[in-house]
Nucleic acid binder design. Sequence first.
DNA 1: GCGACAG
DNA 2: ATCTTGTCGC
Length: 236
Amino acid sequence: MTSVHTPADEAEARAVQDELRSRVVFDEPGPPPGQGLVAGVDVAYDDERDLVAAAAVVLDAATLDVVEQATAVGRVSFPYVPGLLAFRELPTVLAALDALTVTPDLVVCDGYGLAHPRRFGLACHLGVVTGRPVMGVAKNPFTFTCAEPGPARGDASALVAEDGSEVGRALRTQDGIKPVYVSVGHRISLDNACAHALALSPRFRIPETTRHADALCRRALRAAVGHGASGTSSQP
DNA sequence: GCGACAG
DNA sequence: ATCTTGTCGC
């Protein structure tokens, strides 16, 4: 049962990031696309009731069929601060992942990994905490810049930070559709992460993993609010 | 100093 | 993230 410490303030959160950042592994290629188990994780909030629901959905990478899924509901323990998203989302995401009976070969986050102001986005954080391969797929370029990738599915361009380093890639997953932004989290290469993102998006812009997790966490949140239940709490 | 800024 | 109808399209 893994967990994420909830900092008392932003300064402590940044200190935690600095401490964990050195443990990210970037020199492993990661699991091959199209085989094994890939999990998608996402969360939904109810600020009124201070609730957060997380979902973890495991897909068979070859068929994209759902193999298993789990949810967890907890209380929001950290405010939304750009750059510190992990502290808001991961406690409940970990609870959902812990509820799975299978261990996915790769986890896909809705957000960034290395492409982060402090080079330690939630995908890196989740990777270090679980020790498992993790990558991030975001819907916006955040603070980074990139050239417009080619128009065809599979076309990509470098996502560049202020210092000129490539921190991720803008990847077109569907012809003529706005690209997604891929970055590595832990124990996977950028090339392989892009290959996975493409394999997971045969029909829509967003990877099937994220689409399933998004739908499930919203359902879990509605159920929690509707029944006033707390589900598998991330903070007992 | 102020604003922008993954979800 | 979330607030939100009808509408366009497969």
